[in-house]
Write a protein that binds this DNA or RNA. Sequence first.
RNA 1: GGCGCGGUGGCAGAGUGGUUAUGCAGCGGACUGCAACUCCGUUAACGCCGGUUCGAUUCCGACCCGCGCCUCCA
Length: 460
Amino acid sequence: MIRVYNTLSQQKEVFKPLEPGKVRMYVCGMTVYDYCHLGHARVLTAFDVVTRYLRHRGYEVNYVRNITDIDDKILQRAEANNEDYLALTNRMIQAMHEDEARLGIQPPTAEPRATEFISEIIAMIQVLVNKGYAYPAANGDVYFAVNTFEGYGKLSKKKLEDLVAGARVGVSDAKRSPADFVLWKAAKPGEVSWASPWGEGRPGWHIECSAMSTCCLGETFDIHGGGPDLLFPHHENEIAQSEAATERPFVNVWMHAGAVRVDKEKMSKSLGNFFTIREILEKYPAEVVRYFLVSSHYRSQVDYSEDNLEEAGRTLSRLYQSLRGLVPAESAPETDSDRRFEAAMDDDFNSPGALTVLHALASDINVSRRDGHDEAAGKNAAVLIRLGKVLGLLQQDPEAFFKAGAVEDLTADTIEAMIQARNQARKEKNFSEADRIRDELAEKGVVLDDSREGTSWRRG
RNA sequence: GGCGCGGUGGCAGAGUGGUUAUGCAGCGGACUGCAACUCCGUUAACGCCGGUUCGAUUCCGACCCGCGCCUCCA
């Protein structure tokens, strides 16, 4: 029995898909005008773990994650770059796919793009206009009349009066109410546009997700997820549009990831305090970044700092250290570890709780190896790798994990030669020479591990 | 101002009405030529004040502090 926190009800609920054994999930993806940052990685990782776990539990998951490839920021950026907007979006989509692959994010089942759904978007807007939920304005825009939708605010717990009174919302003369939002934007001369019953234009931000999600997954589906800052207005507006258009419940469970922070502030584009995934991957191995993200609950905020990333690296190393030089069993039966792992994950995808099971397994393996119980160690190793996979961790060859990355101006052969020279010196009790070699390697980021079987190395 | 979330040991981070989270770091020991790795042991916590209770870090209330959304943002 899986329990999931639902933003809509503000509590954990027993997860029950509409169709037994199948899960239909939609997650708001990227607006592709720039490289992905750590905040994106957080959402990507969170829902990757959700998907992996649901599949582990036997569900067939239809995971749809959209790409927003047309909006103001894209057009602005393209113009600033003196680049065709399609060239820009294609470039960023490719970069995003590279980042995802490095972080071990499995591709979604489908990845619809807004520009591929223009006719569906127009059709949905038409329905909203016909039903009286939306109105074309004098300036060529089409707006959703928020006061026509009774449940407006039910996701974000906001009252319409407060929103209108708050009035930080840009007041446009064309809008009937400041809280109304745009469904179709009239094109300015020379802008990319599509023909519509209301003239040349392009979709507003929110409508694309309503159109793509309901087209791909049906009028009602199981899970809708996204970043914390999408809760309002984006998701609130999606509900209004979709439920107004279909007259059916839009989504059963709303899931929102926690924010990534830097120096106690949310990492965001507007604050400019963001680190792109690729910047971070220049400094830390991808799996360490992933471990860092998975080591806190998906709903809580995480603080990005070098200390935290380095600690994640040390901790992940411990896990890999237990697997190093060990041949995992071909297969291992279900164990108590599996059950404890699942108990943690069943409780709203408690990945930090699940990680404690991995650490316990690593300890067991280390003890077995110390005592020469290689078979027991091998079995536990198989379990550790099996459970690690559900979190997208521990799938590398340990040697590759330890030796990956830059060891500047030292080839593996050189390192091996130095190790041999050191071991020769040790044999001759020339310990000052042996230590000199070890220190020299350490200075270049290579740490030596002596054991009965010999000496191995890893990056420090 | 409105709405929401959170304050756990040096740090990161789960969780529970009464019993060890876990990891990193520290300390003592084993292993080692010395280290590293690993193992054994160990220190240390629940923002503040009331209330409920036999018993609260865990439930309730007040307070203090921090964060997020209310404008584009994952």
